[in-house]
């Protein structure tokens, strides 16, 4: 196999091609109509009215405790709204919706050494099936293809604990992608990653969005690594969720209000843009 000239080491670089604009046909990815959420009698956020078009790559931002993870739980059907209505891909959210892929927060911290990357991705496809029996050839090929698409094939047979944070996050994303979802939810996928790994994950997310009709929702604390690829932002401000195309969000006054600390938007001569706190 090593002599095979067609067998190349898989490289980890993903060429980022600007994707098509968000698709507007069919039901929206997420719609909130006067939606409120309460937990233990306390209102987390209320009066949410927004529509996120399909094919978007949207960041979910807001200060700590503003209900970002709660929003994902509503979309996943794990938590009902206390008022108003929610529609996800045209339906009321329901647990176990196969059209949604989910990468929870601190995903990698909870997984020890007892599982290989490949098996973990396989669970995303077959983990809900009862009874015995090996995965079918089709299933195994799909796991293989998904591992390759996120650049995880070279370390697929290693245990999760032996992988770097960036590699673990790729495997987590592959597990969510293997069932070919229409909506991908990621909770803090960039936390605890160094800048290089952050950029690799961001490029991967952009490649996923650019490839097809998938809508990607990313909960993040820091906007900067994502700025170049976002199409919109869902921000939780003063107890209300709002959605806006990205150009409208990257506004000094709004960000300053959102984070409760002075935020500046800096444009570099090279055309890059980033936000920074402080004067």
């Amino acid at each position: 196999m090593a002599d095979d000239p067609t067998h190349h080491e898989h490289d980890h670089e993903h060429v980022v091609v600007p994707g098509p604009p968000p698709a507007s046909d069919g039901p929206a990815a997420i719609e909130l109509h006067g939606a409120s959420v309460a937990r233990g009698g306390r209102t987390i956020w209320e009066h949410g009215d927004l529509t996120i078009p399909r094919g978007s790559l949207v960041v979910v931002i807001g200060p700590n405790g503003s209900g970002k993870t709660t929003l994902l739980q509503v979309v996943l059907g794990l938590l009902p709204v206390s008022a108003g209505s929610v529609s996800v891909l045209g339906e009321t959210p329901h647990r176990g919706d196969p059209r949604i892929g989910y990468v929870p927060q601190n995903y990698t911290a909870t997984i020890g050494n007892a599982v290989r990357a490949r098996d973990l991705v396989g669970l995303g496809l077959t983990g809900g099936r009862w009874g015995i029996g090996r995965a079918s050839a089709d299933d195994r090929r799909r796991v293989e293809d998904t591992l390759e698409s996120v650049g995880a094939l070279t370390f697929a047979d290693q245990r999760m604990s032996t992988l770097s944070g960036g590699q673990q996050q790729r495997v987590a994303i592959a597990q969510a992608l293997v069932s070919k979802p229409d909506l991908l939810l990621l909770d803090e996928p960039l936390a605890n990653l160094d800048m290089r790994n952050q950029n690799e994950v961001v490029e991967l997310l952009e490649a996923i969005r650019a490839e097809g009709e998938m809508t990607v929702l990313v909960v993040a604390h820091d906007l900067n690594p994502l700025l170049s690829v976002l199409t919109g932002a869902l921000y939780l401000l003063d107890g209300h969720p709002h959605y806006a195309p990205i150009g409208d969000v990257v506004d000094e006054q709004l960000l300053t209000h959102l984070y409760g600390t002075r935020i500046r938007v800096v444009h570099t001569p090279q055309g890059d843009m980033f936000t920074r706190s402080g004067r």
Partner: peptide, 12 residues
């Protein structure tokens, strides 16, 4: 056992 949060969301 391995992925309780993901399994929960997947309807397990």
């Amino acid at each position: 056992s391995v992925n309780p949060e993901v399994a929960e969301a997947k309807g397990v």
